[in-house]
Deep mutational scan, measured.
Amino acid sequence: CHSECLGNCSQPDDPTKCVACRNFYLDGRCVETCPPPYYHFQDWRCVNFSFCQDLHHKCKNSRRQGCHQYVIHNNKCIPECPSGYTMNSSNLLCTPCLGPCPKVCHLLEGEKTIDSVTSAQELRGCTVINGSLIINIRGGNNLAAELEANLGLIEEISGYLKIRRSYALVSLSFFRKLRLIRGETLEIGNYSFYALDNQNLRQLWDWSKHNLTITQGKLFFHYNPKLCLSEIHKMEEVSGTKGRQERNDIALKTNGDQASCENELLKFSYIRTSFDKILLRWEPYWPPDFRDLLGFMLFYKEAPYQNVTEFDGQDACGSNSWTVVDIDPPLRSNDPKSQNHPGWLMRGLKPWTQYAIFVKTLVTFSDERRTYGAKSDIIYVQTDATNPSVPLDPISVSNSSSQIILKWKPPSDPNGNITHYLVFWERQAEDSELFELDYCLKGLKLPSRTWSPPFESEDSQKHNQSEYEDSAGECCSCPKTDSQILKELEESSFRKTFEDYLHNVVFVPRKT
């Protein structure tokens, strides 16, 4: 048989008469490798580009789960590009990614509803959504962080984005990388972005840091009482949809009607710091009717980097990364020049730590249904340095008659930039024990000054392991946590139920 035959053949030295091919099969003959313009397919066939392209389009058009959109890589027609490569849609070739590779997620039936953290986790790592997304989240724990972890990498949506009755959302900033909504599939009414009845939605994105392009379709905003109209108009300008909307697409009466839409800028007039305090004062603000001013709200939190936005980490279910302080308005003076500047002394802060701070007014709604208010920009203030805590785990070892090696770990709280350490030492008198000992005694162990690591005695271990207080009263049991108490109650309830079950099964009433 021919060298490319495997198993047997019907005619000697003829690659077209093989029972099976050793390498690849091409047009009725066995070959060692697939010549151009053919590609290896499933490690035994040679196919042309049209064959591989037909497989790709067949799966793409069917949208069946589990099928493969075949691509070409290293002269092979394979189910998908290997790690580190992405497909070129024009020629199906796998090309190296520039940075992290995109991950295209194809949605069944063309859309997916995100109504819980669990459903959001199914899209973790996706960068391109081939379909439409509907966000409908009523509640949950730590929602802002969970949504950002699972949806934060999405850069492109081919269909539309719909935010509907998501009472738990305060902001859409968890879509931190969303840059493009194509609108290839539109919501009824030709809408590519749809926001309806979101009672706590206050911000779409921080438009000073976020760009969003909507290729096709219109915007729809109705019944978002805490979303200011200025935020919607800003989205029109940034996304390129200005002029597409009709009169009733953006409701003037049901958007922002319960919001404090600040239209003035508060400026800080005085800032002073110490290692654990920050004193702030800002310019006074009074609405047209000074009785509408209820006070100020001061927001602050630790910020290692200057990239904080107002609604980071917030949701309507209680999660809030900001510390909020309510401040009463100052006494009002008739003389504008003698107006008191409101302020606040922030206490209990960490030394040498940068804080993000902003302040906003708290006002009631005027009778004319106009909203007044003022808010400052987010500023960054760093507390002063102070003395560091003591170095940890000092170790001293003498390696000769004239040297001592000293080692330690950095302090747990540096409280500033540590530039150097101060080492103090003092000579001590020799131990009298060394002169009084009889060095001729056998088995004498000389006193040693070398360091030995501390260890816990058996008594201390027994005390720590004991669940009861000892007789001397030195140790006591740790208080039980809520989960331990709940577990004990469940076990007790189970024992009672099981005992009742045994009584009912074992003891049967005697027939009379």
Rank of each mutant, 00 (worst) to 15 (best):
E246Q: 08
S401V: 15
D257H: 13
K112A: 08
Y191A: 06
I134G: 03
L266M: 10
R247I: 14
I378S: 01
Y305K: 01
S398G: 15
T127A: 08
V363D: 04
W344P: 01
L349M: 09
Y160E: 02
L279V: 09
A303Q: 15
L293F: 09
T254V: 07
K162F: 03
C261H: 02
G217Q: 03
N340R: 02
R370T: 04
A251V: 13
K277A: 14
D206F: 03
D257C: 14
H341K: 10
R291I: 10
L108W: 09
F193K: 00
K234W: 09
E236M: 05
Q245S: 09
E231S: 14
I134W: 10
E122W: 11
T254W: 13
L349W: 00
V390S: 06
F174Y: 14
K103N: 04
L178P: 00
S401A: 14
L345G: 12
V359S: 02
Q339H: 08
T353S: 09
C105A: 01
S239W: 03
P411S: 15
N130L: 09
I278G: 00
Q216P: 02
N150H: 11
H341Q: 12
T361A: 09
L362A: 15
D257L: 03
I405R: 12
E237L: 08
D249L: 11
S402W: 05
N399Y: 04
R202Y: 14
D257I: 06
Q199E: 14
N141L: 12
T364Q: 03
R369P: 07
K242W: 15
I357P: 01
L219N: 09
Q216H: 11
I163F: 14
E155Q: 13
Y300M: 15
R370P: 08
G131V: 00
T364D: 15
L227M: 12
T309R: 12
W322I: 02
L201G: 00
S116F: 07
E246H: 15
E302I: 07
S396D: 15
L345R: 02
R244I: 05
I278S: 01
N150P: 09
Q245H: 05
Q216A: 04
Q245F: 04
N340H: 12
L392Y: 06
S400F: 03
Q245Y: 06
L406P: 01
F311L: 05
T127Q: 07
A120N: 01
F311C: 02
T386R: 09
L108C: 04
V381H: 02
K253D: 03
R370W: 12
I214F: 11
I135A: 03
T113C: 11
D206Q: 09
G189V: 05
I134Y: 15
L293K: 04
A259V: 11
M297K: 04
A303W: 04
N150V: 04
I278N: 00
K267A: 08
E231L: 13
S119A: 02
L204A: 11
R347V: 13
F365L: 14
L108V: 10
S338I: 02
K209W: 05
L123E: 01
G240E: 05
Q354V: 05
R369T: 07
V117M: 13
Y372V: 03
E146T: 07
L227V: 03
D289T: 04
Y300D: 00
T273D: 02
L227C: 05
S116H: 11
S208L: 14
L293A: 07
Q382I: 11
K360I: 05
V308R: 04
T273W: 04
K177V: 09
N248P: 12
G313M: 15
T273E: 07
G140F: 06
L331Q: 10
G243Q: 14
I404N: 04
I214R: 04
R244M: 12
L212I: 13
K267V: 10
Y380T: 07
K267N: 04
S230K: 09
N211L: 08
D292V: 03
T118G: 06
W408S: 01
Q216L: 11
P351E: 01
T254G: 11
R179H: 08
E262P: 09
T254P: 08
T241E: 11
G159H: 02
L180N: 06
I357V: 06
R281F: 04
T371I: 09
R332Q: 03
T118D: 04
G125I: 01
K267M: 12
Y160T: 05
A251N: 13
V104C: 14
F268M: 04
L406F: 09
R138S: 11
Q245E: 08
V238K: 07
S230W: 03
S274H: 03
Y160A: 03
N130G: 14
I135S: 00
I163S: 03
K162Y: 07
F311H: 05
L123C: 05
R164V: 05
S319C: 12
F275N: 10
F299E: 06
A385F: 07
T371M: 12
K177S: 12
S158K: 04
L153Y: 08
T213S: 11
W282Y: 01
L204I: 14
F193N: 01
I129S: 00
L252I: 14
G256K: 02
S119V: 05
C126W: 00
L279T: 02
M346L: 12
S402F: 08
D335T: 13
V128H: 15
N130K: 10
K209T: 11
L186K: 05
Q216M: 13
Q121A: 05
G373I: 10
V325S: 13
D312F: 11
K209V: 09
Y305T: 13
G240W: 03
L180F: 13
N248H: 01
N307Q: 02
V238S: 06
K253F: 07
E156A: 12
G256Y: 06
Y223Q: 05
L331P: 05
T215W: 02
P410T: 15
S400C: 12
D276G: 15
S402V: 06
Q121I: 10
Q306M: 02
G140K: 15
L204H: 00
N334E: 02
G125Q: 09
P330M: 07
Q203R: 10
F268A: 03
T215K: 06
K162S: 13
E109L: 07
A303M: 04
S132T: 09
V381E: 06
D249W: 14
I405G: 08
A251T: 13
I157A: 00
S119H: 01
G295R: 02
E237I: 13
L143R: 03
G183F: 02
L204D: 00
W282I: 03
R138H: 09
H106C: 10
G373V: 11
I134D: 12
D206P: 06
V363S: 07
P411V: 12
P288W: 08
E109P: 05
M235F: 11
S173G: 10
K375A: 09
V170T: 10
K409D: 11
N142S: 07
I378Y: 11
L107Y: 05
W344A: 15
S171Q: 11
R202K: 06
D292R: 08
E237S: 12
R247E: 03
P394L: 07
